[in-house]
Structure formats: structure tokens, C-alpha cells
């Protein structure tokens, strides 16, 4: 589709390369001619974005690294730099039990979320590929969770999971599954599970939509061929469909990972990191260190742990997006 678009300009460049004053400054770059004026225009078009990325991404990331080696205190916030602290902030993170459990919780939370989101999301995606009354409605309404700002979602779940008068406990008692209401939010052994349930709820639509559109792209002939060969439903899924959509599954899990290690709003609204820090994730504890204890150096050190964790995905993500890294449309033609 996009291969077509590069062709006309290329032929113009090659065929009429020496015509007219307009093209006098033509430079041949990888088979495509770009006038000096066009070159300048391109850079001007790019300038706001380059400045923005430098200011809003590169600078904070570099500054965060600097902060993590500084001895900060409430008094130093007014200044842009503070005394050098060596590795003290990182040593603090390693020794601080809450930081350590926050890192462990982040792993548990991320792993649990991805497993839950994938299993439910994939099941729903498969369901929606079947023909039955209500499938279109189901598919279009499944994105409704995205209507709510995350902070509202968190608060609603807090309301629904309340010990007394919460819808979840009410349902479980009415159905007869439990006799005593469950303390979803204030039981230290359970709170992280509750946050996990809320996050799975939040992430399922994303998994469903991406996997559904991948399933739509599986050629009918392939499925029919497998059917004729006598493959059962499970075999067809495992041996035919999953291998075909594997690239999409990988991208979906990767994006899911990136989204999940960042989760903040939901936890702040649902439990605030409590009870007894049992739902404290790297994000929420970093916020606590920086903005409630005003230890920006320690917060920055913990941020860097999170950044490294998230950036593990970067090479993989770039590799999976290699198609979009082409320098322009139809470049490979």
C-alpha cells in the first residue's frame, strides 16, 4: 500500500534531476533528491518536536540520573543541584525494606496482570470471532472502561470493594459464596490481589481489541484447511492460529508490560499503597519518597530502577516496530 507512494517522487528526482533553477542545489541522498530548501523546510517542521522531546523527555531523564546521585533535602529543592552523594541513594533503596518490597510487588503485579489480561482478553477475542447474536454490541461496548479517568476508576473500585456496603461483598454474600464480608482493601494479604483485579479489568479491553483484530487477519482458507485435515478446536488454536498471530501477541504483551509497570493512579485511588505498604509499587513508593518525604534523591534512584525495568523492553519494542523505522514511505522499493 505505502510502497506505491514513494515511486512518483523518485522518478521525478531521477528523470528531471537537472531541470530548472529550483533544483540547482539538489543533493542525491539514497536515491532520492532533496533540494536545499526542502531540506531546510523538513528541519523546520521537525524543530518543535525535537525541542519538545529534548525538554520533556531527554532533560528529565538526564536530570533524574543526576538527582539520584545528589544529597537532596527539602532545603535544596529551590536549587537545581545539591551536594554529590555518591551511591548513598542507591544504597538506601537496597536497604529500605519498603523499596525492596515495592520492587517485588511491581514484579508480582505486572506478571499477574499480564497473565490475567491475556487469558481473559484472548478468550473474549476468540469469542467475538464466532457468529452469535450480540457479538457486535459486545465488541463495541468493551472499550467503555476507557471512558473513565483512571483516578475515577480507582475510586469506584474502592467503593465496590468496600468491606461494608460494597457491591462485591454484597454479591458474594447474596449468592452464598461467603458468609462474612471479605476485607478486600485493608487485609494486607489481600489488598494487592484487589488492585490486581482492578488492573486486569482495566487492561482486558486493550488485549481483546488488539488480539481480535489479529484474529480477523487470519486467512479463512488456513482455518478451513486445518478443519479439513481433521484438527480439533484446540489443535487449530494451538498449531494454526497462535503461530500466525504470534507477532501481535508479542507486541500486545510487550505494551501490556510497559503500561503495567507504570500504573500509578489506580493504586493511589484504590489503596494509596496501604495497608502497611503491601500495595506499594515502585511508582507509588517513588512518589511517596519524593513528594511526601521530600527525598528527591532517593525517589530518583528508585525511578531509575523503574526506568531500567521499563527500558528492558526498548530494544525489543524497536525491533518489533522496525517496519515503521523506514526512513520514508516506499523506501525499500
Amino acid at each position: 500500500m505505502s510502497a506505491v507512494t514513494g515511486v512518483p517522487s523518485q522518478s521525478v528526482g531521477a528523470g528531471h534531476g537537472r531541470g530548472g533553477a529550483h533544483v540547482s542545489g539538489v543533493r542525491k541522498a539514497r536515491g532520492f533528491t532533496l533540494g536545499r530548501r526542502q531540506h531546510l523546510a523538513a528541519w523546520l517542521f521537525l524543530m518543535p518536536a525535537i525541542l519538545y522531546v529534548l525538554f520533556a523527555f531527554a532533560l528529565p531523564i538526564i536530570y533524574n540520573i543526576m538527582l539520584s546521585f545528589e544529597q537532596t533535602s527539602p532545603a535544596t529543592i529551590a536549587d537545581i543541584t545539591a551536594p554529590f552523594a555518591g551511591l548513598a541513594n542507591y544504597r538506601f533503596i537496597l536497604d529500605d525494606p519498603t523499596s525492596r518490597t515495592a520492587i517485588i510487588h511491581t514484579f508480582e503485579f505486572t506478571f499477574g496482570s499480564l497473565v490475567g489480561q491475556f487469558i481473559i482478553g484472548f478468550s473474549l477475542a476468540l469469542l467475538f470471532t464466532l457468529r452469535f447474536p450480540g457479538r457486535t454490541l459486545g465488541r463495541s461496548l468493551i472499550i467503555v472502561p476507557w471512558l473513565l479517568p483512571l483516578i475515577v476508576t480507582g475510586l469506584i473500585f474502592r467503593f465496590l470493594f468496600q468491606l461494608e456496603g460494597g457491591a462485591v461483598n454484597q454479591l458474594l454474600i447474596d449468592v452464598g459464596l461467603v458468609h462474612q464480608p471479605i476485607d478486600w482493601l485493608d487485609n494486607p494479604h489481600l489488598a494487592l490481589v484487589t488492585v490486581l483485579i482492578a488492573n486486569i479489568w482495566l487492561g482486558v479491553p486493550f488485549f481483546t481489541l488488539l488480539l481480535y483484530s489479529a484474529l480477523q487477519d487470519v486467512p479463512v482458507q488456513v482455518k478451513e484447511a486445518a478443519l479439513i485435515d481433521g484438527a480439533g478446536a484446540w489443535q487449530r488454536l494451538r498449531l494454526v492460529i497462535v503461530p500466525i498471530i504470534l507477532p501481535v501477541i508479542e507486541v500486545t504483551l510487550l505494551l501490556g508490560f510497559v503500561f503495567t509497570v507504570k500504573v500509578f493512579d489506580l493504586v493511589i485511588a484504590l489503596t494509596g499503597g496501604g495497608p502497611a505498604n503491601t500495595t506499594q509499587l515502585i511508582t507509588t513508593w517513588s512518589y511517596n519518597l519524593s513528594f511526601q518525604q521530600f527525598s528527591f534523591g532517593e525517589g530518583a534512584a528508585l525511578n531509575n530502577v523503574l526506568l531500567v525495568l521499563a527500558m528492558i523492553c526498548a530494544p525489543l519494542y524497536l525491533y518489533m516496530s522496525r517496519g515503521s523505522l523506514r526512513s520514508s514511505s516506499g523506501a525499500e522499493k
Binding site: V53, A56, F57, L59, P60, I61, Y63, N64, L67, I77, I80, V258, V261, K262, F264, T283, S286, Y287, S290, F291, F296, G299, A300, N303, N304, L306, L307, A310, M311, C313, A314, Y317, L318, S321, S324, L325
Partner: peptide
Amino acid sequence: SALLVAQIVPSIVLATSLFVI
């Protein structure tokens, strides 16, 4: 590439630095 990587950066990392800056 920079834009793809930028999408990965957690907001709390940016928020901490941006606050001080």
C-alpha cells in the same frame, strides 16, 4: 526510535524531575 522509546518512559520518572526543573 526516540519517539518509540519515549512512549515507554514512566510518567513518575518525568514527574519527579519536571517538578524540580
